[in-house]
């Protein structure tokens, strides 16, 4: 049964690769491809949530923070490029005369890419290690991350002259000289994103199957006991949390370039909770499920908000309640049960 499940998971990953790399670019026009790319940026976060929450039992309601760190890092780079020799427009409006020292490094693409990887990973590891060492977990951890997400948003809105405030950072033009809104760029960005997404998905599957994956499951079920198997469980949990943060940050960067903006709304509390919903809908124990969840919920939101602009959020709430009560393992869990019952 276990072997069979592994094959199913591999099959689902292969199907996903085929759909995302071949079917979508062929069938969807530029507009919808860009939209799919935008929703798939949340798939990175959702995969991280499968690792941390599904396998590790660590529920974070603040993944938007890490999504935001990646998103804002790339947005700063794009904004500096779009502004040419001038300061970014929102800084000028706020009366800032010189480029702030911590903005300047983001004119360099390598520093920006390094920041997208290193800043969230370091912050996530250090923060969560200190918290886990104090043996804070479960609901308490979720509340701490929720509070941090809230603080992060307040900070972004409050520091308007450095962050663009409520509006965030937008009006990009080019990336390394290429027009980011051209037809060719849409495809180039999309393919880059999918290749990275598949890389993250396969990497996560490998993590789950490794001995570390088993240790993480053991920690979820019996953390006390795992310490008596000689593991520093705080460090293991922090490592998994760091992976989740890293994936979220990569997703955030892709969101910025796909959507052409990053703002406090996108990285706030509501958005952070929605990210958990993606993983729950797809199946919190399934990596392909996380990608499926991000796509399904994303397009559903798009469809519903266009057709029922006033009440669409209720549909989303109903969907979450339905998933949690009727299918605890999400869409992939449903598929799983269906396939296994046919033996």
């Amino acid at each position: 049964m276990k072997i069979k499940r592994e094959y199913m998971e591999l099959g689902a990953l292969a199907t996903l690769a085929l759909v995302l790399l071949v079917a979508f670019p062929l069938l969807l026009g530029g507009f919808y491809l860009n939209l799919a790319g935008k929703y798939l940026s949340f798939a990175f976060v959702a995969i991280g949530i499968v690792l941390t929450w599904g396998y590790g039992g660590i529920l974070s309601l603040g993944q938007g923070i890490f999504f935001g760190l990646g998103g804002y890092a790339l947005a700063m780079f794009l904004k500096i490029e779009a502004s040419g020799s001038n300061l970014p427009d929102f800084m000028i409006w706020s009366g800032i005369k010189v480029m702030p020292a911590w903005w300047a490094p983001f004119s360099n693409i390598y520093i920006t890419l390094a920041a997208i990887v290193l800043i969230p990973a370091t912050m996530a590891f250090v923060f969560s290690y200190l918290v886990f060492k104090k043996r804070v977990s479960g609901v308490y951890f979720a509340i701490v991350t929720l509070a941090l997400a809230l603080t992060f948003t307040v900070l972004l809105v409050g520091q308007q002259s450095y962050t663009g405030g409520e509006n965030g950072i937008t009006n990009f033009t080019t990336f390394l000289g290429y027009d980011i809104y051209s037809h060719a760029s849409t495809y180039a960005i999309y393919y880059t994103e999918i290749v990275l997404l598949l890389f993250v998905a396969m990497g996560s599957t490998a993590v789950i199957r490794s001995r570390l994956g088993n240790v993480v499951i053991a920690i979820r079920d019996r953390e006390d006991r795992v310490r008596f198997s000689g593991y520093n469980t705080a460090a293991i949990k922090a490592f998994i949390f760091m992976l989740g943060a890293l994936f979220a940050s990569i997703g955030g960067a892709f969101f910025t370039i796909q959507a052409g903006l990053i703002s406090p709304t996108v990285v706030g509390v509501t958005s952070s909770i929605e990210m958990v919903v993606y993983a729950a809908v797809g199946g919190r124990l399934s990596v392909p499920g996380a990608v499926l969840g991000a796509l399904v919920v994303g397009f559903l939101q798009f469809y519903l908000s266009n057709n029922f602009p006033h009440i669409w959020l209720f549909f989303l709430g109903a969907l979450f309640i339905l998933v949690v009560t009727a299918m605890p393992n999400g869409l992939m869990g449903l598929l799983d049960r269906f396939a296994l019952s046919r033996e």
């Binding site: 993590v207 490794s210 001995r211 570390l212 088993n214 240790v215 000689g230 460090a235 293991i236 490592f239």
Partner: peptide, 19 residues
């Protein structure tokens, strides 16, 4: 798997990932 994760070498995060 229960026995495997009790093996002393490979108790660090990276060591167990690449075990």
């Amino acid at each position: 798997e229960n026995l495997e994760i009790s093996i002393p070498r490979g108790r660090g995060a990276l060591a167990s990932l690449f075990f």
